[in-house]
Design a protein around this nucleic acid. Structure first.
Lengths: 326, 326
DNA sequence: TTGAAAGCGGTACCAG
DNA sequence: CTGGTACCGCTTTCAA
């Protein structure tokens, strides 16, 4: 930058100003500085800038898995809304609380201006670090009544209640439940709780062997679904929630010639294109993943600009989409 | 850090060493420093560290779209291989060269230690900035004979040749081609060229109206496929390449009761689970996306550690997986 | 509108 | 093995 300054015959201070607030520099000076930048090929050093100003424009986001399209959707919403003003640093926690803690530590060391967590269970240290740092933080996805700082999402429990109730309303009585592993994953814990609550309220038996954890992916969902149904041929419906488990189940049923929903009904969750594109199209819960990302960004931006927030916890809700699988 | 130093009754220099190279500090001193860190809740400032050392441990990656699972797969490979030693900053170029340039500029300002580009077409400025900065850079995905710095991937043209040749070998003569838009996307340009070359070599007519660009996603693929086939009922096969276009085509065919491959055959590309899970399972080109990410990381790491590379361009190849759709 | 001086919080380098 | 002393490259603050 000093090169640019001497090229343009001004002080470094003026160059710095020209870069950050062109209006505060006379147009003639500005022109000379711009030319000098062009000639020297100067690339500002944001490390130095951030160190001096004690501000950065990097938002750190931690997702359980980069492979899961649902998280990607929220990342995309965040990225779009932040685009231009802020940059995104992304870490994959591998569905582990320790992974999340390590990522948080790294983000804080990097002095990110905000952190977005796609998990609302944390180690005690994670929560403490975040609180002590006073950094802006949004927990997205599952709604948290008492967030570290802010939260945007929907109630997984309510959503699971809605789907289970819907299945019961359609006349199904023996209803199974398939999801990813519940360990360290409050979203699954909540959904399973919602499913069990509604079963109980309806006076239906909640059988542990109707509940199954699945590997991820289409093939994981297929295996879990086929396994569960073959072990319990008396099942009438299965609530298959998370990832692309339910589409995997449908595709497997098609291959086996099981008719859906006659032989076995499926209630799904998440509404990517694939839930709609399989035959039969899945009755599913639509979660506003992209919107959650956008809203999280908006809240962060508000906070960083010192505006006061209307709400620290924003419920974006969900919808039950009736299609043909149940 | 000066707090920690006085707490532990050593100099800042010793604290700094204890953090970066614990072995170089006596165990007693180390213990005191660790305690002091614990008590004070000290979080190192990597901005300052990086500024002073002129090194960072952040790798910047630019993908055309965060929504596309194929890119995500490479990100995951990179992230896994870098995990622990480096952090990842991800930018979405929105399939545009200007978007890529802006991201490169931001990364350079951030002084990332390396850049990974999932595109091998660049603006002149992009290439110049990267070259001038002398930063480690890997272009992944499509193989580049003359990379800015390094390249890992496979030949899209050869892959398209292989699939087109395969379709011809199966006896299909009127073969269509569906892909994402070719603009700013050398991967598509290459594949289309490969398709046309083989058609020509086989003495088959290359009809422009057999070639179609599609919106992305399952539904995009479905629309393009149905549209093309309805306009040209005489088509015998379609090479549907990229994204999840081909699975979308199959799913749409299923809904319409078109039998595949009897009514119309499909050759696909990319081999995610979905290509395998649809019925009929897709005959497709398998690209080593995850491995490309890992290899890119390995090459970067080698470079950053000053080791000399065996090869600046690494071809990881592709495979044609025969299944039931053609 | 412009500039000088004093850091930001660490690390490199050399000495002890 | 430990410490002192210059910076790293920019911004803040205050003055002109």
């Amino acid at each position: 930058m000093s090169d640019v300054a001497s090229e343009a015959a001004v002080s470094m201070m003026t160059v710095s100003r020209a870069l950050r607030d062109p209006a505060s520099v006379s147009s003639e000076t500005l022109r000379r500085i711009r030319e000098a930048i062009e000639r020297t090929g100067y690339v500002p050093n944001r490390l130095a800038g951030s160190l001096a100003s004690r501000r950065t424009d990097i938002v750190g986001m931690i997702v359980p898995s980069l492979r899961n399209a649902q998280y990607t959707e929220t990342i995309k919403g965040l990225s779009d809304a932040l685009s231009g003003s802020h940059y995104l640093m992304i870490a994959d926690s591998g569905y582990s609380l320790e992974g999340e803690e390590a990522a948080i530590r790294a983000f804080l060391a990097q002095r990110v201006c905000a952190v977005v967590l796609h998990n609302t269970m944390h180690t005690a240290r994670s929560a403490a670090m975040l609180r002590d740092s006073g950094i802006a933080c949004v927990e997205v996805g599952n709604l948290v009544p008492d967030p570290i700082d802010m939260s945007v999402g929907f109630s997984n429990r309510d959503a699971a209640r809605a789907m289970t109730g819907y299945l019961i309303g359609r006349g199904y009585r023996r209803i199974g439940f398939i999801s990813l592993p519940a360990k360290d994953n409050e979203r699954i814990v909540e959904r399973r709780a919602g499913y069990l609550q509604v079963l109980e309220k309806a006076g239906l038996e909640a059988r542990p062997d109707y509940v199954r954890e699945s590997r991820s992916g289409l093939i994981g969902g297929a295996e879990a679904f086929v396994g569960l149904v073959e072990e319990h041929p008396d099942l009438e419906a299965v609530f298959v929630t998370g990832d692309v488990l339910a589409p995997g189940a449908v595709l497997a049923a098609v291959r086996r010639g099981w008719s859906i929903p006659q032989r076995i009904a499926i209630g799904a969750s998440d509404d990517d294109e694939i839930q709609e594109s399989v035959t039969p199209a899945l009755t599913t819960l639509r979660f506003p993943r992209y919107e959650i990302g956008r809203k999280a960004a908006a809240m962060l931006l508000d906070r960083l600009q010192g505006r006061t927030l209307d709400e620290r916890v924003v419920d974006l809700g969900f919808r039950l989409i009736e299609r043909d699988s149940a």
